[in-house]
Design a binder for these strands. Structure first.
Lengths: 211, 211
DNA sequence: CGCGATATTGACCGACCGGTCAGTCGATGC
DNA sequence: GCATCGACTGACCGGTCGGTCAATATCGCG
């Protein structure tokens, strides 16, 4: 047995108990939801006793909130908006691809948030809007708005609507892949890049002939 | 006490027990999900004993499946695609508005399906694709494809992608209203018609200036 | 009326839930 | 050596879960 500094835990390997509990809780909450993920299961996966979980977190709900908080602050959730150079078309393509890749990479966190919003309704919706998504959404809208003032964007387009469409298309792709996959006409479920590319192409040029 | 025909039930008023159980189960499953909706609560809301629920449905899961089946076959879920007259623009506008209105009107069913897909994953995704959404999606794609052959639609556009975008935008609006509502830049959360209108406008003409 | 079938019920079961509690263990400071 | 403290544990609590069962109420039918 290797000697970690002060060998604080004897049950399972790796990091300290609190981190293992948080990791196990994140997995189980994301897989099964709040109710279906039992404290017994979380403790077992973390390699500690259930009582120890309650020693570190005063209740199941506080553990859940802690998981949510740390999950939302993980690196990778902050979207690279690509404020930098390039035409609007290039930047949008870049953003859409990066955004969709983020969602797919942190699938657990995405499912966690999706579940939370579904179960906790409007009240949680406000919290998520203000504390998690608000800043990034506002930044995206601002970028689009300045692009519109510089003439890169049509006058009649509402920047907030365009931002909603960009994000919503990715979110819908994420959570409906398993349905879309079985439609014979759909060929992009396994290549998110091509989905992003087609999305931005339609948004840029529209669907009417003769641009 | 009024004399209904043959007065089959003495507990609660209205339709027979089975229908009341199905209605109560639909409500509770949609509100709370499969696990959180207890058979006790369903029986209580239906005005019967829990044992009676198990008399009519052999298990909680079979009751759930029955609810899903009847819910998906309810009138109003079959989208009016507006095969009829009018330009492509008019028909798309019509379809998008009707589709979004359908989702919002049958909110319980929409939440039910959303929950089911989230909890039962890929396996249920296949069932939903084949038995519930497949026909309507294929019809929408077919309409778009014929429109493309008649030159109403740009060549480079993938009809399946456009259909996904049309449906996905509405679904995302439905399930993210409570978040979007709290973004100061967003003004369309209370007027789905304007959302649909802006959506179709962007899809038709794109976002670049000078069409 | 009586009789079989069906609808309905309250009492009950084992399993599991979130949460508590008394107490053990090992490190630290004096 | 010894008191103290946080990490940790197994046993246990009241309560709820899905599901069962024997008994009763009500029905359609001859």
């Amino acid at each position: 047995m290797p000697l970690a500094k002060s060998t604080p835990n004897l049950s399972a390997s790796g990091p300290h108990a609190v981190e293992r509990i948080l990791a196990a809780a994140k997995d189980l909450f994301a897989e099964s939801g709040f109710n279906a993920a039992s404290m017994n299961a979380i403790a077992e996966r973390a390699g500690v006793s259930k009582a120890n979980v309650f020693h570190h977190f005063k209740s199941k709900n506080s553990l859940y909130l802690e998981v949510l908080k740390t999950a939302c602050n993980e690196p990778g959730q902050i979207d690279q908006l690509g404020n930098g150079s390039g035409t609007l078309a290039e930047r949008l393509r870049e953003f859409s691809q990066a955004h969709l890749a983020n969602i797919l990479r942190d699938e657990k966190i995405s499912r966690l948030i999706q579940r939370d919003l579904l179960e906790n309704g409007p009240q949680r919706g406000k919290e998520l809007a203000e504390q998690v998504f608000g800043q990034n959404f506002a930044r995206l809208v601002e970028i689009l708005r300045t692009g519109q003032k510089k003439g890169e964007l049509r006058k009649g387009v509402d920047p907030a609507m365009l931002a909603t469409l960009l994000i919503g298309a990715d979110v819908f792709f994420f959570q409906s892949r398993e349905v879309l996959r079985h439609f014979p006409d759909v060929h992009f479920t396994d290549t998110p890049e091509s989905y992003s590319a087609m999305l931005v192409d339609i948004l840029l040029h529209g669907i009417l002939p003769q641009p």
